[in-house]
């Protein structure tokens, strides 16, 4: 059997000859189809069995080539917070900087994160990473392509986003607002939001949802903002050696002058 058969949404297997009598009168091809379908029905869905659900590109070769037309190869790196040397501290670090509670069921330390490293020859072109965040009516999968030097977002796209307003939220002009943002901008936003709302240096504060977004779709807009921050944090943790921490500490100092930075 060819491996690509298993890439279908259902499991497909062909079976032998012990079929109901009436089917033995049918042509071989029809019998095979019957068997494939019946067994697909029997075992549909059982392939998803995993401990924690990560977020991977459904077609990495195609998607990465679209993001980086000059790429010649890519590498996947699978990381988990629980496998870091000081996993408890790392998870605490992650929670503290996300500025919103992590879901204890779906956002645990055992969640596998897949980072795509894109190369042209030996030159690293960029990192691509996706996260799952719970949206209003289902999971939202947010992928970021980031510059390996500046850690700034070069592209944002959704692999999964199902909502009545998904067309508006997926709109290119909405997504392009995120280009150039770094994790430092989110940390600075924490400060501006509290101390100086509407400040012109607050790039995250200037992000605007699609015009006339229905009220019930605001949940998804906020989930997207949270997902982008979560994604940048994981990139910072696993690939950028927490380089943006001085911004976090400075924002916290400014907001809570009596507290010492961590």
């Amino acid at each position: 059997m060819k491996s690509n058969v298993y890439d279908q949404p259902f499991i497909t297997i062909a079976i032998g000859d012990a079929m109901p009598r009436q089917f033995h009168k049918k042509p071989l091809r029809q019998k095979m189809v019957w068997r494939i379908v019946l067994l697909s029905t029997l075992f549909a869905g059982t392939r998803q069995a995993q401990a924690a659900i990560g977020c991977t590109l459904s077609n990495p070769g195609r998607d990465l080539k679209t993001l980086y037309p000059e790429m010649t190869s890519y590498r996947e790196e699978l990381r988990e917070i629980r496998r870091l040397p000081e996993s408890a501290n790392a998870f605490e670090w992650f929670q503290e900087r996300l500025a919103s509670p992590l879901d204890p069921v779906y956002e645990g330390a055992d969640t596998p994160y897949t980072f795509y490293l894109v190369f042209q020859g030996n030159r690293l072109l960029g990192y691509v990473h996706g996260v799952n965040v719970p949206g209003r009516g289902g999971v939202i999968q947010i992928f970021l392509a980031v510059d390996p030097e500046t850690a700034a977002i070069t592209r944002l796209f959704f692999q999964r986003l199902e909502t009545p307003s998904s067309a508006a939220l997926r709109d290119r002009t909405v997504r392009d607002q995120f280009q150039g943002l770094t994790l430092a901008d989110f940390y600075m936003h924490d400060y501006f939001q509290a101390a100086s709302p509407g400040h012109e240096a607050d790039k995250v504060g200037r992000l605007s949802p699609p015009a006339r977004l229905p009220p019930d779709a605001w949940t998804d807009w906020h989930a997207i903002l949270r997902g982008v921050r979560k994604n940048l944090l994981l990139l910072d943790l696993f690939l950028f050696h927490r380089r943006h921490d001085p911004f976090f500490n400075r924002a916290r100092e400014l907001l809570n002058p009596k507290e010492s930075p961590s």
Partner: peptide, 22 residues
């Protein structure tokens, strides 16, 4: 039994459904 398509996305628009829910 019916299959609901889960709208997909990617760097390019209109990449079609990427997942299905039974």
């Amino acid at each position: 039994l019916g299959v609901a398509e889960k709208p997909a996305g990617g760097p390019e628009e209109n990449t079609g459904p990427s997942a299905f829910t039974l």
